[in-house]
Design a protein around this nucleic acid. Structure first.
Ligand SMILES: [Mn+2]
Ligand SMILES: [Mn+2]
Ligand SMILES: [Zn+2]
Ligand SMILES: [Zn+2]
Lengths: 152, 152
DNA sequence: CGGCCAAATGAAAACGATTTTCAATTTCGA
DNA sequence: TCGAAATTGAAAATCGTTTTCATTTGGCCG
């Protein structure tokens, strides 16, 4: 790793080492805050901006990429060998993955047909996961139009 | 429109009327600022929050939906009869659309196979549009590792 | 082994889009 | 017409992201 970074012109530091290791230990879809918390458990002197910068660096060197679900928080997803898509449960907000190998071909065709040279594909499927369907909870009826309209 | 909203418990106002009309007159992928500017051309007394709230309302009643490309700005996309995906040019940032009818079937199958009940699909293809490829401009070599790493 | 200098760090501040607050105004059904 | 509920505009609050800046550190070179 140290060597890998060095060849790209970056130095290794204790903080960086810890941040990189922590990131890869954590699951997928990690937010800055989550990683920051994890890192601070090991070394509470590491700064937030250092975590943020290193997360950006991890993306820059191609080891992860940002994921935006429109919930206001950027998450970082460890790069996978084969491209994958995301199921986003609108109830519990859980993010799960699926392989998109068999679809990439079609996306490439669509791109070609539209005179567009693709470099990356993102597929997000919103819906409800099994767990949430089984809970089948709170119908939660509309009562106050304004509250519904103006509040999240 | 007035009637449509009334049945959902919302009132019509001059501002709302103007905002809705302006939104549908504009192209796709409109940001709050863009719509705000357009609206102010007609009536400079309309407030920013009113524009924002009505954009949210348009989504709530199903006439549009938010689009997030991770560039920090939420855009609002008029709902289309048939679902469509987006080509996002990494150079000029232009967003163009493509029909995804022929892929939706597969996405539905993938969802079923993963025990997920889908309610919406989003496909984003990053790459370069024709215009940008033809410009084929500025190779822009890396010179300062830190600058490259820490600045956008 | 020093010395040097770009890279890296941490704290704090800046940013900027989004969202909320609140008092005043308006809509629309009873 | 009246009044409750919705809407509005201005301003402030939020809050994740990004930058600034003074200081420290890593790693290459002699
Ligand atoms: Mn993922
Ligand atoms: Mn669109
Ligand atoms: Zn769920
Ligand atoms: Zn382009």
């Amino acid at each position: 790793m140290r060597e890998f970074l060095r060849t790209k012109g970056f130095k290794m530091t204790p903080q960086r080492e810890l941040i990189f290791r922590s990131f890869f230990e954590m699951g997928k879809h990690v937010s800055v805050d989550e990683l920051y918390d994890k890192v601070r458990q090991q070394d509470s002197s590491v700064g937030y901006s250092t975590v943020w910068r290193n997360l950006k660096l991890i993306c820059k060197v191609g080891l992860a990429e940002e994921v935006n679900l429109g919930d206001g928080v950027t998450r970082y997803d460890r790069a996978t060998e084969t491209p994958h898509g995301h199921f986003y449960c609108v109830d519990c907000k859980k993010l799960t993955e699926f392989d998109m190998d068999n679809i990439v071909g079609q996306l490439a065709i669509i791109s070609r047909d539209n005179d567009f040279v693709p470099s990356g594909f993102k597929i997000e499927i919103q819906g409800r996961c099994r767990a949430c369907r089984e809970k089948e909870a709170t119908p939660k009826k509309t009562t106050d139009a304004q509250a519904e309209a103006q509040k999240p």
